[in-house]
Design a protein around this nucleic acid. Structure first.
Lengths: 280, 280
DNA sequence: AGCTATTTGTTCGTATGTATA
DNA sequence: TTATACATACGAACAAATAGC
């Protein structure tokens, strides 16, 4: 059934509701009329209204709360993730203290489950590098790497980010043998990784890139995100040796509605209100 | 009806289908079985299958084609939008030639409609600055600005981006009077904007930031995007005068599955395969 | 605490329209 | 033209979460 020149009814209703939202007919945080009311208002059925609402939820304009209602989604302030600049730090080092910048560590069930408890936040796990990580680091799949991760939560806003790092194992440990007979002799402690790499391969360089994709699986809960309508902001940093060889791959996953990435200008001018929350 | 410990059936099916997709059980581009077949396979109804599929479409993993089928969404190569670096150009200048970098101009109906034809691609329109643009430029709403825009399409990949620029009008024109009696005397041509600003306010500086949000309205068609499941990548550049006053705000809208933004490292090493497609 | 009304969530059946091969 | 596939729409029933009394 198509009323207006072949446009689906749920789409017409979605367009009308969107206009109301973007033109501040409804204020952010305000509840929309109930689905039953809207169904009678637009002379249609509840499934059709729900389809229209689902569209706007996917566009990030509305949120729906079971048993409570449908609300205009407030746009939170975005915190900055600064890229570039001169000093870089090992964000996954056991000695790195995120509390300095207003963050606290949080533990997330799904990560512990995924790694079967073999690695805890800020500890290091020797494992093979697979998939796109191998591509980025320019090595073939199966190469030995060191994996570290952490979840941080911003103390004030409770916004969460996920950090992880893959670095080539033979740069910080002595590996002998192959396959089952492989032995790893790690003389260097995680807190010394960066200093060691600087000595052996410095001066180090970094390349940072940003992209975005839709989250799925347990990412929603792990990052405290709205279940739909929020893209994921991915900040990736590649550490290069003096001669351009990749050494470490660091990735930050952040809710796209609460963070933005900024390229540091020459004279680092951190927002006067302390907006900057993380430097990569 | 909840089969498995309170989880909705469509959610269980979505999880199963997702596993099949991410574990390459289905190859990218390959068609999934029809909705009717899946409904009988999972012993459920077609609406439930459709809900599960809709979830995965929203996650960017599937696309659905009316009358053809449901397909695993291939992930296209991403082109780079380079941020930072030394030379900056006026991307909206009439003399700027995007063809040098493999782009071609395209016209988009909705933009012409939105501005009621008062401004054509690469021409300049004097108009008041409203909303978030005023905030970013640090002026109050209603201040006179110069608006320019263009849509580019990458010749090889047909990926599209939208560029627009707002700059403070009184920096490139003489404005006398207020309200209805306002008169604008623009001695400076659009192609000379940057040179003029460099003379009067240089040396100029730029700050670039990246964020992401879900697109809505006509953005999908204008940017040749998948209708859902693709976030928008927004690259924003603020031009500052020598003394830190904002002069111009440039924004690039790009499909998030086809572009990523990268902070230029010290020694600009454009990808050896010509991956770099735009510098801001 | 319990109860009730309200609101959204899930699932089904069914019918018809429309795009594609 | 025909068959197949997805799109839209309605009605109905019950489940589950929430808020207020």
């Amino acid at each position: 059934m198509t009323d207006d020149k072949g446009t689906a009814r749920w789409r017409i209703i979605a367009d009308l509701l969107r206009s109301d939202v973007v033109q501040d007919h409804y204020q952010p945080g305000q509840a929309l009329p109930g689905e039953a009311f809207l169904a009678s208002e637009y002379a249609t059925s509840r499934p059709t209204i729900r389809k229209a609402i689902a569209q706007l939820v996917g566009e990030g304009l509305l949120t729906v709360a079971h048993g409570r209602g449908t609300f205009v989604r407030p746009t939170p302030d975005r915190r900055l993730i600064l890229m570039g600049g001169s000093e870089r730090e090992d964000l996954l080092s056991p000695t790195y203290d995120p509390a300095k910048q207003g963050w606290e560590h949080v533990t997330v069930a799904s990560e512990a489950e995924r790694t079967a408890g073999r690695v805890t936040p800020n500890s290091a796990l020797f494992m093979t590098i697979e998939g796109s990580k191998a591509d980025v680091l320019g090595v073939r799949r199966g190469r030995m790497g060191v994996y570290r991760y952490a979840y941080w939560q911003h103390t004030k806003t409770r916004a969460r980010i996920h950090l992880c790092s893959y670095l080539l194992a033979d740069q910080v440990a002595t590996i002998t043998g192959e396959g089952r007979g492989m032995e790893i002799d790690s003389e260097i402690e995680p807190e010394d990784y960066y200093a060691h790499l600087e000595r052996t391969h410095g001066p180090l360089r970094w390349i940072t890139s940003v992209h975005t994709q839709m989250p799925y699986g347990e990412t929603y809960e792990d990052l405290n995100m709205e279940p739909i309508g929020t893209p994921l902001l991915l900040v990736r940093r590649l550490m290069l040796s003096k001669d351009g060889r990749p050494l470490e791959f660091t990735e930050i996953e952040a809710p796209g509605d609460r963070f933005e990435a900024a390229a540091a200008s020459e004279h680092d001018q951190a927002g006067s209100d302390g907006q900057v929350s993380l430097r990569v």
